[in-house]
Design a protein around this nucleic acid. Structure first.
Lengths: 184, 184
DNA sequence: CCTCAATTGTTAGTGACTAACATTAGAGTT
DNA sequence: AACTCTAATGTTAGTCACTAACAATTGAGG
């Protein structure tokens, strides 16, 4: 663990604890830097924005590999949907709980609409690449990737706010909708 | 045309002309207010943000009505997709050209990713309402509406940057993908 | 011990956006 | 024409995320 990783971790910890205590909006970047024992400038060298401290890409880039494993002649939307379904199947209880905490903060904060997609750029890019490998046109790939991730973001927020719902079920329902299933 | 509408129009005009001259990023809200002959405070009373000056809801709320006109047992995604297709069919050449200009500014500016969806909240809300009237679950409705609008935003940006492409064709291809067609 | 590059600190600033309160314009009434 | 009352605007002073330029420091390898 080099110096960079240490401060990176310290900043993340400081941010999450402060967000939990006072809420996202009421927490300033200066306070986060102070608790991490670091200057504010350093904070922005490690995280491009304040919201990046809360949403450090919870989505997994292994989704792209799952897309590549789908049947070649499958429709783009369905391929992405099924890939996401498989990729999210193996998520332990601990990560799930942590994700829920983070997403609840997103929901509680004002002005964080679309924050999930904004911080899923890497995942979207990976998805586009995987679809391109299947011979899908670039525009088509971008449309499908963005649509699925955006829809998924809505479902994730809804799940995080609900109390007794299983993540797998919530995602499954959303993916059914996105894939064109007949959910009325 | 009352006073409110006049300043509203003046602000919109001032903003668009300045964006065209110096670009979005290089234009400050103070300059816009000055050219409109108005204080900066008034600007924010008329437009909730700087980007709202560029993206004053180009999407039509009549999309919701088109959803209501779709067959009741149609899948949510397909219903929304087809409704959008119909709603955008009647768009004159002038509006199309103006839309292209605006979207090119969006593409040129930095930090305006997701700006389209952010300013389509009303359309999304309307879509959700229309889907709810069909008996679709609220989560399902939100997922479908958000996914379609997000995917559509990507297609719109791509169309705006391309030179010789017909808007109807571009939208049609995107909607096919979103609806689950077999576009490889 | 020295060097050099990576990492961090300092300072000063920009620009979008907000709050509280004073001021004006303008349509309707008498 | 004077009067009123509300919508609309102005003023001031501020907050806060984020950036640029440059100086200082840490730490690993020679």
């Amino acid at each position: 663990m080099d110096r960079w990783s240490r401060t990176h971790e310290a900043l993340s910890q400081a941010a999450l604890s402060l967000f939990a205590e006072r809420g996202y909006d009421a927490t300033g970047t200066a306070q986060i830097a102070e608790r991490a024992g670091v200057s504010e400038m350093t904070l922005f060298r490690h995280f491009s924005s304040k919201e990046a401290l809360l949403l450090a890409d919870p989505f997994d880039p292994l989704i792209a590999d799952a897309v590549r494993a789908r049947p070649v002649n499958e429709q783009p939307m369905r391929a992405v949907v099924e890939a996401v379904r498989e990729a999210w199947a193996g998520l332990d209880a601990e990560s799930t709980a942590a994700l829920r905490v983070r997403l609840r903060m997103v929901a509680a904060a004002s002005g964080l609409g679309g924050a999930i997609e904004r911080n899923s750029e890497e995942t979207i890019t990976a998805l586009i690449g995987a679809l391109a490998d299947r011979g899908v046109a670039t525009v088509t790939a971008r449309v499908a990737a963005k649509a699925v991730i955006s829809g998924l973001g809505v479902a994730l927020l809804d799940w995080a706010l609900s109390e007794n719902d299983c993540l797998g079920d919530a995602l499954g329902r959303a993916l059914d909708v996105l894939g064109g299933a007949d959910n009325a």
